[in-house]
Computed example of a mutant assay.
Amino acid sequence: MSEENKNLGDDLKKGAEEAFDSAKDAAKNASEKAGDFAEDAKEAISDFAEDAKETANEFAKEAKETFNEVSGENKKILAGILAILFGSLGIHKFVLGYTKEGLIQLVISVITCGAAGIIGLIEGIIYLTKSDEEFYQTYQVGKKPWF
């Protein structure tokens, strides 16, 4: 029985060594898989961040273009109505950012007792009959101060 116990002990030792080797291999494989997963996750996060940045830039660009179009349209209507109603005072010039031209129109209006109001009336009609894009390009981008 002693021989049997020795063989049994050897078998247990051999089984334990095989189990230890299997566990070691499994741990190594798990470690490699975890490393691969971490690399894949880093790449996915990097790609996501890049896509998010591109999307944000596109959104910002579109928002800026929309704001420019809307602000151009609002200035068109405001400048047109002010030019028709108060053209002799040159208020519409100030709204469009033409301070020097607004002061010139105001001075001419004071000197001619309001006759410069005809210029304002004409400009108001011109402003309101232009398309939004044409108005924006002509008076806000191109900075055309008169007519």
Rank of each mutant, 00 (worst) to 15 (best):
120 G>Q: 07
53 K>W: 08
71 S>K: 12
127 Y>S: 05
76 K>C: 03
61 K>S: 13
123 E>L: 02
76 K>W: 02
87 G>K: 00
15 G>F: 14
88 S>D: 12
28 K>T: 06
125 I>K: 02
139 Y>T: 04
123 E>A: 03
103 L>Q: 06
122 I>C: 05
42 K>A: 14
51 D>H: 06
26 A>P: 01
107 V>N: 08
139 Y>A: 05
125 I>Q: 03
60 A>R: 12
12 L>C: 01
147 F>H: 01
126 I>L: 12
131 S>G: 15
46 S>V: 04
142 G>Y: 02
107 V>Q: 07
16 A>R: 13
12 L>Q: 08
1 M>H: 13
78 L>G: 03
43 E>K: 15
138 T>P: 01
57 N>L: 13
79 A>S: 15
49 A>K: 11
6 K>I: 15
119 I>H: 01
117 G>S: 09
84 I>C: 09
73 E>W: 11
32 E>T: 09
83 A>I: 03
70 V>K: 10
50 E>T: 11
113 C>E: 03
4 E>N: 15
34 A>R: 13
15 G>A: 15
128 L>F: 03
19 A>C: 05
34 A>S: 12
81 I>W: 03
81 I>K: 02
55 T>M: 07
67 F>E: 11
82 L>W: 03
131 S>F: 01
7 N>D: 13
65 E>P: 04
102 G>W: 04
14 K>C: 08
30 A>M: 07
114 G>L: 05
147 F>K: 10
66 T>C: 08
75 K>T: 07
116 A>Y: 15
20 F>Q: 10
50 E>H: 07
101 E>T: 06
107 V>R: 01
80 G>T: 09
62 E>Y: 10
18 E>H: 08
60 A>C: 01
130 K>D: 10
36 D>Y: 02
110 V>H: 05
84 I>M: 12
55 T>F: 11
134 E>G: 02
66 T>N: 08
